[in-house]
Amino acid sequence: MIDESGLPNCFRPQRRALLKTLFALPFLAYPFSFAQAQSALPKQIPAGTKLVIADQNEALQTLMHASGAQGRLSSTVSYANFLGGPAILEAFRAGALDLATVGNTPPIQAHAAGEQIPIVAARVSSETDYFLALRPGLKLNRLEDLKGKSIAYGEGTGRQPFVLNALKLAGLTRKDVKLVPLRAADFPDAVRTGQVDVAALNEPHFSRYLADFADRGASAIPKEQNDRLPKSLTYLYASKKALDDPAKAAAIREFVAAWIDASRWSHSNVDAWVEAYYVKRQNLKPADARKIVESEGAFEFPVLASLVSKQQSLIDVIYEAGDLPKRLDARDEFDLRFDDVIASKTN
């Protein structure tokens, strides 16, 4: 069963301890770099091969089914719904997951904890993944106006470097604001009730917040200011145990290609995607849902080798903020064997 936080009930007792100690752990180096792995990916998928994949807000499973990509998979794929990278990492640590779709920070979180969950694919958007929502009645015109404000802070999620980059661009440090540690699931309620002044929200939570609390003066940092922040970066990452299993590695290889096809389908079939996910799953009005899809911008699927420097920059921002015990090497977070698969879908 999955609770309201997106965390399977069997993992809840370990959650507090994990979040408390994760970035306090001594640095644990990977025994080898996935970037240097030379063995070719297997291609044969035996009958009966199964994958368990983490999802967030049911977006991935809806995409795969609505696009028809799910029905073309040779393996049996099941999905478990989560909200936030820390909960997904717990499931990986428990051996309950083979693959997950996450933001740019969970691979860093896993790396810092000594977990081998290399990135196998990526999707880059022309727009940001989050928006800086403001508590009802608060108005801020620039990132520099964040000074002195309380900001929701989700370590181990994509919201972490998003907030840190906002402070950096504004010439501020964490000492200039009050960072309030919260679960990703609690961000919307925290900003709605004024528990925090600012919270980084993604869709559909951001549009929902602005619509539901418009009469109370709900607002956000202006888009031109939000556009100063890094663009959306979504990763697929997989457990080393799954990648060491030839059958599962081949199934993951196939899934990566299918995920790229499905993502492209969503932009070529906007009405069908809006109806399948935002209307039926998220209960949004079609017009509001279309605005969300349009706000996502265009997708690209770069080879992983081209993202190492970008990931290193994220690592450095988190390290310089004092949230990592040691500067990590981004090269250890990628399995570059998947670049051939990605390149074959983009040429």
Rank of each mutant, 00 (worst) to 15 (best):
G171D: 06
R174I: 14
R174C: 07
R174Q: 15
K175Y: 12
D176P: 07
L179I: 09
L179F: 04
L179H: 10
V180T: 09
V180F: 09
P181E: 12
L182F: 08
A184V: 15
A185Y: 07
D186K: 13
F187L: 14
F187M: 11
P188H: 07
V191Y: 00
G194H: 08
G194I: 11
V196F: 00
V198H: 01
V198Q: 01
V198C: 07
A199P: 09
A199C: 11
E203P: 03
E203S: 09
P204E: 03
P204D: 06
P204T: 04
F206K: 06
S207C: 08
R208D: 07
L210E: 02
A211G: 12
D212H: 14
F213K: 08
F213H: 15
F213G: 05
A214V: 14
A214F: 14
G217W: 01
A220P: 11
P222I: 07
P222K: 11
Q225K: 07
Q225S: 11
Q225I: 13
D227G: 10
R228F: 08
R228V: 04
R228E: 12
L229H: 01
K231S: 08
S232I: 02
Y237R: 06
S239A: 08
S239R: 00
K240F: 05
L243N: 01
P246Q: 11
A247N: 11
A247Q: 00
K248N: 04
K248H: 03
A250F: 01
I252Y: 01
I252M: 03
R253Y: 01
R253N: 12
E254Q: 14
E254V: 10
F255R: 01
A257K: 14
W259C: 08
I260M: 04
D261S: 14
A262P: 08
S263P: 10
R264C: 09
S266V: 07
S268L: 13
S268C: 12
N269E: 11
N269A: 05
D271K: 12
D271Q: 11
D271H: 15
W273H: 05
W273S: 08
V274K: 01
V274T: 13
E275G: 08
E275C: 00
E275N: 13
A276M: 08
A276P: 09
A276K: 06
A276E: 05
Y277I: 02
Y277E: 00
V279N: 00
V279W: 01
K280R: 15
R281F: 00
R281Y: 02
N283M: 02
L284A: 03
L284K: 01
K285H: 12
P286N: 06
A287M: 10
A287R: 12
R290A: 09
K291E: 11
K291Y: 03
V293R: 04
V293K: 02
S295D: 12
E296F: 15
G297L: 05
G297W: 03
A298F: 13
F299P: 03
E300D: 14
F301E: 02
F301P: 04
F301T: 10
